[in-house]
């Protein structure tokens, strides 16, 4: 244990689709310390994306029971924008297109919101342009992405790279990457993974939600967890991912209770 307080502590988390919808998380427990990379794997419908949404504060999911502590503080009591300015970042599985919103302005707005919340100096247009220039090589992005509208007309790979660029700008303590590898070709996967690795440090942690072992070849996890039916059913080190690749998830699931939930 490097720090006294874990970066993220999820205790007996129960969550369902808002307004009395389907129950998805059923007593999930997870502790993430600074310096660790946790991979969350699991079959479709096991609750992986729901967990990401709960942590980011998406209004479509409602927490019915349990606690989430971020740096020892109640994360669920914070508004989504407060979570972001406190250092929690969600890289979207399907990044949203914002036609009419300039990418650079958007990044600057986000950066300044975080600076302001932390009582740090904000950057003007020129200052931010300089700052941004240093971040672009991380995701091998060209300048012209910045002049376009946020994700509008971007390819799948460009959208994911733009997510990591936002991560680079916001420099979060806890990053949740929700299937960031999906829809990426091998080159793009390498670029994205390299970007993430460069952003990782001993005072940060990453929650890596993924279907495939391949991403873990690039971003090495400290722990691998299998999520099924809204709970973590087994945990292990990197070798667990290889075992899953070989055997699938079936051997971990009680068949009679297998559920298909698409969220």
């Amino acid at each position: 244990m490097k720090n006294q307080t874990p970066l993220l502590q999820i205790i007996n988390l129960h969550a369902q689709v808002a307004n009395g919808g389907q129950k998805i998380l059923n007593g999930l427990n997870l502790t993430v310390n600074a310096g660790e990379v946790h991979a969350i794997m699991g079959p479709n419908g096991s609750g992986k994306s729901t967990l990401s949404k709960v942590l980011a504060g998406h209004p479509s999911i409602e927490v019915t029971e349990g606690e989430v502590l971020y740096k020892g503080q109640n994360l669920l009591g914070l508004e989504p924008n407060e979570r972001a300015t406190a250092g929690v970042f969600l890289a979207f599985q399907y990044p949203i297109e914002l036609p009419g919103v300039n990418n650079t302005s958007f990044l600057r707005m986000a950066y300044n919101a975080k600076q302001k919340a932390n009582e740090l100096p904000e950057l003007d247009e020129a200052g931010f342009a300089e700052f941004l220039k240093t971040k672009l090589p991380l995701v091998e992005m060209k300048d012209d992405y910045l002049h376009r509208c946020v994700n509008a007309g971007f390819s799948g790979g460009e959208k994911k790279r733009n997510e990591i660029l936002q991560m680079a700008v916001l420099n979060p303590c806890l990053s949740i990457l929700d299937e960031t590898d999906s829809g990426l070709d091998i080159d793009a996967l390498r670029i994205v993974a390299n970007g993430v690795n460069q952003l990782m440090s001993q005072d940060k942690a990453i929650l890596l939600v993924t279907h495939y072992q391949r991403l873990l070849d690039y971003i090495e996890p400290t722990f691998v967890h299998v999520l099924a039916q809204g709970q973590i059913v087994t945990s292990g080190d990197k070798s667990l991912a290889l075992e899953l690749e070989e055997k699938g998830y079936d051997w971990l699931l009680p068949h009679s209770q297998q559920v298909e939930v698409a969220v």
Partner: peptide, 21 residues
């Protein structure tokens, strides 16, 4: 939600999207 998840306040996010329209 996308804007808010990046730390931008809900009011500012609404203005940004309104102007984008």
């Amino acid at each position: 939600f996308y804007l808010v998840s990046r730390g931008i306040s809900p009011d500012e996010a609404r203005d940004v999207l309104t102007l984008a329209f």
